[in-house]
Design a protein around this nucleic acid. Structure first.
Length: 148
DNA sequence: GCTGAGCGA
């Protein structure tokens, strides 16, 4: 039942795998039955391992405290932030959570991905690395993209 | 006060 609800709710990038569960072609009458080059059905759910977690599917009224409290139960959360709009001031519906270690981040994903928060199904995934400032590095030396 | 896919001050 849980897998059905994940497919119903908007999924980030792993949604495509749910629709492509059929391996061997059952209708050889189609000209598009060309055998795929790879054929591997694994190693697709894990992105680049990092302590930064991208949490999406958050409720509009979910705050940073709720996000941190929800992920802190699975590991030590170093930093948590719910992205809010600068103009309206309301949350955009997604946030970022950074764990102390990679294993805590993995446990956080396995523990909070596809779970309910504020009545909405949230999705935990590794966040993409942010571009460095390049110049003026004397202001903020630490960046959440590359903790190591 | 809020739209509901997507990546931040």
């Amino acid at each position: 039942m849980a897998l059905t609800m994940r497919a119903a709710v908007a999924a980030p990038r792993g949604l495509l795998r749910l629709f492509c569960t059929n391996s061997t072609a059952s209708s050889p009458t189609f000209p598009f039955t060309s055998t795929p080059p790879s054929g591997a059905t694994s190693t697709r759910q894990m992105a680049d391992p990092s302590t930064n977690l991208f949490v999406s599917g958050l409720s509009k009224r979910t705050t940073t405290e709720n996000l941190r409290a929800a992920f802190q139960k699975f590991g030590e959360v170093v930093h948590a932030r719910v992205v809010t709009d600068r103009v309206s001031g309301y949350s955009k519906g997604f946030g970022f959570v950074q764990y102390a270690t990679l294993e805590d981040a993995a446990k956080g994903i396995e523990g909070m991905d596809g779970k309910f928060l504020d009545g909405w199904v949230i999705f935990a995934e590794y966040a993409k690395p942010r571009p460095p400032p390049g110049e003026a590095a004397s202001n903020m030396t630490k960046q959440y993209g590359r903790p190591y």
